[in-house]
Amino acid sequence: MRESIHKYFQVGLIQWMSYPQIPPTQSLRAIAGDDYFDAVEVKGFGNENPEAKAILTQSHLLVCYGAQPRLLGPGLNPNALDENERLKAEATLLEALDEAEYLGAKGIAFLAGRWKEDTKAQSYEQLLKTTRTICGQAQEKGMHVELEVFDFDMDKAALIGPAPYAARFAADMRTTHSNFGLLVDLSHFPTTYETSRFVIRTLRPYITHFHFGNAVVRQNCDGYGDQHPRMGYPNGANDTAELLEYLRVLKQEGFFCADNPYVLSLEVAPRPEEDPHIVLANTKRVLNRAWALLED
Rank of each mutant, 00 (worst) to 15 (best):
S4K: 11
V11N: 00
W16V: 13
M17Y: 10
S18Y: 00
T25H: 11
S27I: 08
A30D: 06
I31R: 01
G33F: 09
Y36Q: 07
D38P: 07
V40N: 06
E41W: 02
E41D: 08
P50D: 13
P50Q: 08
E51H: 15
K53Y: 09
L56D: 03
C64Y: 00
P74G: 06
A91H: 11
E95P: 10
D98L: 03
A100L: 04
A100V: 09
E101H: 14
L103D: 04
T131L: 08
T133S: 14
A138Q: 05
M143N: 10
M143T: 06
M143Y: 02
E146C: 00
F150E: 03
D155W: 08
A163F: 07
A163D: 01
D172P: 10
M173Y: 00
T175P: 04
N179L: 04
L182P: 12
L183F: 01
V184F: 08
Y193P: 00
Y193W: 12
E194S: 13
S196C: 00
I200G: 03
L203T: 06
L203R: 12
Y206I: 03
I207G: 07
H211C: 09
H211D: 08
F212R: 06
F212E: 03
C221M: 12
G223F: 07
G225N: 05
Q227D: 00
R230H: 10
G232C: 06
A237P: 08
N238K: 10
R248L: 10
V263I: 11
E274P: 09
D275A: 06
H277M: 04
L280D: 00
T283C: 11
L287H: 08
R289H: 07
E295A: 10
